[in-house]
Design a protein around this nucleic acid. Structure first.
Lengths: 212, 212
DNA sequence: CTATTATTGTTAAAAAATTAGCAGCCTAAA
DNA sequence: TTTAGGCTGCTAATTTTTTAACAATAATAG
């Protein structure tokens, strides 16, 4: 596909591409070779039109009779969303949530892996936690540039968030996945994804309440 | 505000209302009484226009000179998104993530609290974990209706997800917050919020890569 | 060989969410 | 008093995302 184009893929399409790929890995393992848009749609809980449109945007063509060739599609999605060299990720804050996410990822992906953890608790420094070496936060400045880490996951206490975020920017971080309850402001050129559990739960509670 | 109206508040506005409220609690604690749209916007990392629009939608009016009265705003948001009686939540799957979320919530909110946990590991049944009584999943059918639980958080292994989801629907669950990597399909009348860590991280990695 | 069916690819329409623009109002200073 | 400045509330425009509609195409059955 035209590499120029992938720059302006809609954000939502990127998210779905990541999910298509994972779902399709399962299908491959089940021995499937081809897939129709309506099948993929049902697996992902979308409409077939949306699937076709997403695939159109990335320039992938299937056949009218057989649908899409799963392994080709997986490979194309990889070409678009994966980077050439593996990307390293740091996680900051090794409380319950930090450990949960780290061990969830541990050894799961090779192109995108958590290679360093940080915490402000001296007890946790210089140990391996959930399979990842843990350092004291004051080492951020050394380790991130040295390891070439550009992406960080934030799972720390609200009080510390802003201060640590600043350290991350100084250390050259370009992408932040913020699981704190503190809304972050990032400098120009840094990407931010935020997710807040309480918000989702309150929204859900609202919808359920309204419906009664 | 007109109760009819709150039915069709945009989803994104609901999410922001939940966040406004939490941010405003902090402001109150710092002794602030009034807040301007641009202040609230900066705290939340939004534009002032968006803040004003959200507040317009819920029918709240501030004053041109003082902005909004924080405690009134908090109270109005509560009237809209909270339900009259406290809502009970169950969490299914007491692995790392399940425990992390549970202990994060433990005792934090009164109107919305996790009151029961479930796991398919017999070892975990009939114990208190992260402050919440844990049962075996085969008790779902008894406990959820008995306790009047309408909302469930899913933090279990992918293999088990679909089967357990079905049990939840049968037990009368009306809202599901799905943290599994399995996309769910829910029956008519059940609300679904999904969030997948891997997707966010892959999207972020894509954006960072593209930017270089 | 032709008609039928089911699928894709794409353009166009619709819906949802954000952003812009500005009238009107309050305050305070001149 | 009058004027200037800064803020809200709202309508309209824009952008983003989803959905609809349908021509084109391949396989299949008759």
């Amino acid at each position: 596909m035209d590499p120029q184009k992938s720059k302006d893929l809609p954000g939502k399409t990127i998210e779905r591409l990541s999910q298509y790929r994972r779902i399709l890995f399962n299908s491959i393992n089940e021995g499937k070779v081809n897939v129709y848009s309506h099948e993929l749609a049902r697996m992902m809980n979308l409409t077939p039109v949306q699937v076709r449109r997403d695939l159109m945007l990335i320039g992938y063509s299937g056949s009218q009779s057989k649908g899409y060739v799963i392994k080709d599609l997986i490979s194309l999605i990889g070409k678009i969303i994966d980077s050439d060299e593996p990307q390293k990720v740091a996680i900051v804050g090794m409380g319950n949530l930090g450990r949960a996410i780290t061990s969830y990822f541990s050894g799961k992906r090779e192109r995108l892996s958590i290679v360093a953890a940080f915490d402000n608790d001296m007890q946790k420094a210089n140990r391996i936690i959930a399979g990842v070496p843990c350092h004291h936060v004051n080492k951020l400045n050394e380790i991130l540039p040295a390891e070439g880490i550009k992406i960080a996951i934030l799972t720390l206490a609200p009080e510390a968030t802003n201060e640590v975020a600043k350290m991350l920017f100084d250390a050259g971080i370009k992408g932040i996945l913020n699981y704190t309850s503190v809304p972050l402001t990032v400098p120009e050129g840094v990407f931010l994804e935020e997710y807040d559990i309480v918000t989702s739960l309150e929204k859900l509670a609202f919808l359920v309440k309204q419906d009664m």
